[in-house]
Design a protein around this nucleic acid. Structure first.
Lengths: 255, 255
DNA sequence: GAGTGGTCTAGACCACTGA
DNA sequence: CAGTGGTCTAGACCACTCG
């Protein structure tokens, strides 16, 4: 006997700020997101099969599928036919630099060298605190670095992180880690970036940027302000990148 | 008796450069896309109900649904519960300026005034021809204009269109049309933009840009090169916008 | 071959819209 | 109220991966 909510007991499980009607698959999705957030399922690992989940949640496989569909569309999960469904990770050959939209005008590869400038612990000013939802004066970590392409510096990054989430972060650790920054955040600090918003403008190079990027004072640079969010749209990184777009461009696809 | 392809006659209908196996719903999707492209279903109009389509294609409603799901995800169709499924259009209050990512730093609204500079017919140079997949010397239309926000010029657009697709396009028509440019292209020339790629860089204002945007010579501007595609990824517009990002920014969401 | 995700069906019922 | 899209089920079979 098909009924829309065969197990109404599921409903009370959820914090109900919901729009009066929440389909089952969204409730399942919420439950799965909770397990992802709590690291019950860890990045790179496989989650239970659709059949198992259907049994566990006492719904049909189709309903679980729809939940997973949405999580996969949001890049939280990755499906691999014949193998299983896996928790997305920033530590993978394929999906590295997922958030870096800068590309060389010609050529293809994105092999970039990194050079760390400094990594300091200090107190958040009003702007940083506001963006990261902290209080002014709260501890933050600042990381500055340069990315180079074929030995030519292209990106000057200025990064702020909440101090309490990134306790042990050190210059040494940053220098030694291989793979993208977000991979380190994920595996060493359990902080997974799932979404980000960027504000892009054109600015004139100041002395510091000119020095690190090897351009003239006042040269036009792309300023990319990024706020990265983890589960629950909680902001956990503020980053300001200055890009030299002489031989590179920021690529965007509009749909 | 459930079989994956109850009507194998469907398969031969499609140009088969396909990856050995094409699911039914993708074949349905291709057929529907064909009808969209041929303007059998026109922008703003409703398409047949899922039940009707299921009957017509001799598949189950679920299969039609999956085809429509993808078309809706690509913004070719819009679903409205209780009403029907409609062909997306650029002529709607809600979705205007779908491709313009520029926003004022404060405030919200996107009310922009337009000022047409000129609209000329000329011959494509190598760059324009290459981008639009034309031959050098083929006829093109160039449109230049300025967008202002609160009487302050913010965007200087330089637009190239294939001459043969936009025969009657005139300065007068451009000046009189209310609503977004892509709305006019859609309703007057049957050319619908469904996708675009942008290359963004920071550049220094030249004399012309400085004049039209009211900024100093050499001031940093955002250069946004956009190539817009219609059905079949056929490029039909090349646009170079220069944005004054003093009080505005280009907003992007990363997933 | 067993196990996974992917496709497809047939049918029921729910939520929403508008006449 | 009828008609639309949206959800859900149960079950079958297909495509893919790997031991």
């Amino acid at each position: 006997m098909p009924t829309v909510n065969p197990d109404p007991a599921l409903r009370p499980n959820l914090a109900d700020v919901t729009p009066a009607f929440t389909p089952l698959y969204r409730q399942i999705k919420a439950l799965m997101t909770r397990d992802l957030q709590a690291a019950v399922w860890r990045p790179g690992e496989g989650i239970p099969s659709e059949k198992d989940l259907a049994l566990r949640f006492r719904v049909s496989q189709g309903t679980v599928r729809k939940a997973i569909d949405e999580l996969a569309a949001e890049n939280l999960l990755v499906r691999r036919q014949g193998k299983g469904t896996f928790v997305a990770t920033h530590n993978e050959e394929k999906v590295q630099f997922r958030f870096l939209r800068l590309q060389p005008d010609d050529g293809d590869a994105n092999r970039m060298q990194r050079r760390l400038i400094d990594c300091r612990r200090l107190r958040a000013n009003a702007d940083v605190a506001n963006a990261l939802r902290l209080k002014s004066g709260d501890p933050v970590v600042q990381v500055r670095r340069v990315l180079s392409f074929r030995d030519k510096p292209v990106v000057f990054d200025d990064i702020w992180l909440p101090g309490n989430l990134f306790q042990g972060l050190s210059a040494e650790q940053l220098a030694n880690y291989r793979g993208p920054l977000y991979g380190l955040f994920e595996s060493e600090f359990g902080v997974r970036m799932i979404r980000a918003e960027e504000r892009i403008r054109a600015v004139a190079a100041d002395a510091q940027a000119a020095l690190h990027l090897g351009v003239a004072l006042g040269a036009p640079l792309l300023s990319v302000e990024r706020l990265s969010m983890t589960y629950g749209d909680s902001p956990v990184e503020l980053r300001r990148g200055l890009y030299d777009t002489t031989a590179h461009h920021y690529r965007n696809h509009l749909n």
